[in-house]
Amino acid sequence: MDQIIITLVLISLGYFFGRHAEKKHYRHIIEREELMNALPAMASRFPPVGEKFEQTLVSGNVVIANDYFKTFAAGLRNLFGGKVSSYETLLDRARREAVLRMKEEAQALQADYVFNVKYETTSISKGKNNRLPMIEVFAYGTALKKITP
């Protein structure tokens, strides 16, 4: 009985705090993405032709943990299979945040573009039971700054 009460409290705490934090994070992400739009990040490996650039490796890294509510919901999902929608926002936020941090670094270098952008996603809590899932997303690319002759 005690265990059920503890679980219920953890789930509701996870729901309210997790949802609040997520909404806040999304607002923050959308705001910064609009500002950073002036600095395009491209997946292409080939820099624009006919121009010379100063090239610097830039990266952005973020670690996000899941809340108890979402982990519980995903655990229930395990029984039936299907789309694990409770993890979608976690990964979405992590990827976007990592790119934003990378772009911020590029901006500080006064770069014009970031090329060859790639992601690495790692599960930090991988294989450990009784631990909330935690993911790390690492975004990196080559910042290009035009060399004016």
Partner: peptide, 10 residues
């Protein structure tokens, strides 16, 4: 991401 309210799925 899914637009569905998380409590509904839960």
């Amino acid at each position: 991401t899914s637009k569905e309210h998380p409590l509904k799925e839960f």
